Every structure is written in C-alpha cells, then in structure tokens.
Computed example of a mutant assay.
Amino acid sequence: MARGKKLYEGKAKVLYEGPEPGTLIQYFKDDATAFNAEKKDTIQGKGALNNILSEHIMLGLAGIGMPTHFIRRLNMREQLIHKVEIVPLEIIVRNVAAGSFSKMLGIEEGTPLPRPIVEFCYKEDKLGDPLVSEEHILALDWASQHDIDDMREMALRVNDYLSGMMYAVGIKLIDFKIEVGRQFHQDMQRLVLADEISPDSCRLWDIETNQKLDKDVFRRDLGSLTDAYSEVARRLGVLPKGGTGSGPKLVE
C-alpha cells in the first residue's frame, strides 16, 4: 500500500497519510532510545518485532471489547490505523516497583506492589514526561474528569488482559504505559487505545529467573535487544521457535 505524505516522526515510529480519509500508516523504526533520547542506537529487526507484537496485543484487546486505533498490519513494518487526536498524557500502570518508581520512592526494584498503581505523565520529551496529578490535568484542560476516569479504567483493563497473557507464557508484567486518542465521528467522540503496546512500552521479566525481556536490556546494556524481543514473540506464538531477531518470520 502506497504511503501518503509524512505527517510526524517520533523516536520509534513515523506516521504517514493513509489511503482513505481518517486513516494513517504507522511505520515502526529500528531506532532505540533511552533516557529521553540521551542514549541512541539502531537495532536491526526491532521495528518488525514491535509491529507484530503490538498487532498481536491490539487484536487481543479488541477481542475483549477494548476500542483501539488498530485496523490491520500491512507488512513487516507498517500498520493501517485510525487517525486520532492524541491526549497529551502517558498512562502508566505499575504492578512491581522498578525503574524511575523505585528511584523516586526508594523502593527496592522487584518489590511487588499491594495493588496496581496508575500514574499520569505529561507527554513532552523536552520536559522528560513529568508525573502530573489529576489537578494538573483538569486545570490545564488536557482531559475532563470523565476522560480521566475512562483512561484509568482502560489502563486497568489492559493490565488485567496483558498480565494474564504474559503469565501464561512465563512472563511477569512489571509495568507498562499506554497512550489514548480521541476518535471523532460527527459530533461524537470516543477514547481509543493508540500508539503501540510492545516490549518498548512494557517491562517484562521471566517469571523464574527475572531475566529482563524489554527495553531495559538496551538501557542497561544487558545483551541483545532483538533476542529479548524475539523471545517474547516466540512465547506468544507470533514467531516460530526457530525465528531470530535478525530476520523475523511471521506466523500468518
């Protein structure tokens, strides 16, 4: 499918005009960044792996009634998606203390939390995506109270689904982030899951060994990122057992 005009390029994806009104083509890059893009590299196969993993998860969530921007995967690196207006927030769900949460509160990494914690961050790379309260969100008119409640419910539903999916293949869901978009139809709008859900946006640890299978492998120089992502893809059944990060083979 021919791409239209390039509309946006971020750290991990590029958005192009889609073939029909109200659609976009989302292209997954091989670029890897960490620490607000202070650390950068290009890792062959990463984009293709994130594409097929996000497709698999988005389809699963759609199957339980979660509205998403995903329409279909076009090829190894591209998806056709609905055009949405992104809410300028990242919604994070934490099940286990890790990363910035552990540093901020002095809680040892790996400590299970008594219940899932939902956080909101203002989506602005120049500011380091700072943590914000509901008061900030309401006062600055980023979202209404109804939208905040809906986004929290969406995030917790994703957490329930994704935790079960990963646990079934021997992976512990530590935390993850989602983005939400507003999809408009005439005078109506609805919130839908947008962006991607992949090891780029989740912390995933092996249940038995606590081996990291997410972007912390890149952040902390723990080995091959494509090997880690390929392992997740193999366990979820979207790569054959013999598949490798150097050349993912899709299971159609």
Rank of each mutant, 00 (worst) to 15 (best):
E135I: 13
D149M: 05
L193M: 12
T23Y: 07
G181I: 03
L162C: 02
K13Y: 09
T68N: 01
I174V: 15
D227A: 15
S102P: 08
T68A: 01
E20R: 15
M151A: 02
M104A: 14
F101A: 04
I91A: 01
H56A: 11
Q79W: 04
E85V: 02
A168C: 04
E78L: 07
L61Q: 01
W142Y: 14
P248Y: 09
M165E: 13
G247L: 08
G237A: 06
L131H: 14
R203Q: 11
G128E: 05
A2I: 11
T23V: 11
K123P: 06
A48E: 15
A233T: 06
H185S: 12
K215S: 07
R77M: 03
K123G: 06
Y8M: 07
L225K: 09
G164D: 14
G65D: 03
V169A: 12
P130W: 12
L173Y: 09
M165W: 04
D30T: 04
L225P: 02
V87T: 03
D150H: 12
K39T: 08
T23D: 05
G110V: 08
C121T: 14
W205R: 03
A194L: 08
N210E: 15
R115C: 09
L61S: 02
K103C: 03
D221F: 09
S102C: 09
P19Q: 02
S163P: 01
S246F: 10
K241Y: 10
E109Y: 05
P114N: 11
K126T: 12
G47L: 10
A12Q: 08
Q145V: 00
G47Q: 02
